[in-house]
Nucleic acid binder design. Sequence first.
DNA 1: CCATTCGCATAACGGGTGTTTTGTGAACGT
DNA 2: ACGTTCACAAAACACCCGTTATGCGAATGG
Lengths: 195, 195
Amino acid sequence: MPRHKGDHDARRRDVSAAVWRVLSTQGFGGLTMRAVAAEMGATTGLVTHYFGSKQELVEHALALLDERRQSRPRPEAPDGMAGLRAALADILPLTPEGAAGNRIWVGSWDAALGVPELAAGHGVRYAGARERIRHHVQVAQRQGEIPESDPDDLAASIQSFALGLIVQVLFDADAFPPERQLRLLDAFLASLEAG
Amino acid sequence: MPRHKGDHDARRRDVSAAVWRVLSTQGFGGLTMRAVAAEMGATTGLVTHYFGSKQELVEHALALLDERRQSRPRPEAPDGMAGLRAALADILPLTPEGAAGNRIWVGSWDAALGVPELAAGHGVRYAGARERIRHHVQVAQRQGEIPESDPDDLAASIQSFALGLIVQVLFDADAFPPERQLRLLDAFLASLEAG
DNA sequence: CCATTCGCATAACGGGTGTTTTGTGAACGT
DNA sequence: ACGTTCACAAAACACCCGTTATGCGAATGG
């Protein structure tokens, strides 16, 4: 008979948080059962108690990456240009937490590209993101904020810009403080409006 | 007494090529001495004979990445907009070889971000790339091809676009055939000209 | 020819990995 | 009060890693 359901889930979240911390400092190459255990001052017995295997643990971490992106506090998400700007600003590593998430995300690429099935999963994810961008683009075009041109290509370009900016920020945070990130984003969006 | 200097160096290149192949398929997470040896149908004894340690082997592989970028056949590299387009097109994964190089490059990010010293090295590299882009931008501005605005920001935006496009191509090659990559690049550069 | 050196296979070593097993004290139901 | 179940530590397991030693056939040079 389980003591309390909440306790178990709460502890599981603790382990999950430790995984998150290890990933954000050591990357996937440094993610080991013992590292996670040490991160919470415990032994591997605890980790395997809540996550049966390492793969399960990694999958949970990757699922969290998605989850956190989707369930962000999205105060007002209008369509069109304003919504696009909000969505992109939400992705950028403007805060330490955002940087950690992006660092983990970028770090997952090496392992993902090595496993076709994982790579395909990422590919689908990015296609979905482009789809959402495309929606904003089309609304913006309908409202006359952006001149008419292939919305798929525009969406791909916009996501290219955001992804590449994230990578550069991770490798040179000093050169890309939050205000510059937003300035670059706004300038890019303005160039879209000018066509 | 060495048999022939050429033989030794040639064999070393063979090992290096095997490392390249392993990296482009398994990533850094799958790069092991035994994997390299198996890739050339040999044993780890051969690998350690030509590269004393794994670190030496990895460093050689990363040095190759830089080398290949710099010593590309650069037929005509004018300054300004044309040179910028050539430089960016040269980086994109338009061919299988280009895709392999970029896949290895992207794959190195996880390990690099985990070691501050390596991360700083990448940061410097990207700053250098931005510097080169900035040069083209300033020439283009002087020639009136691009309206005046902060060249540093422009360079950062341009590199963002290129980097992000590379990542998207790696994860969904079918959606980004070479002609679309170039079309997106040209459209992006055109939007710069329009300001 | 023969001693030497090279090229590499073979195999061992210590250490780190994911996983499994075992043990144990505390909390719970009855 | 007691047997059961839980949460976790402790330790053992087999495996894979990078590295190092050993051995040996073939080529080389005197």
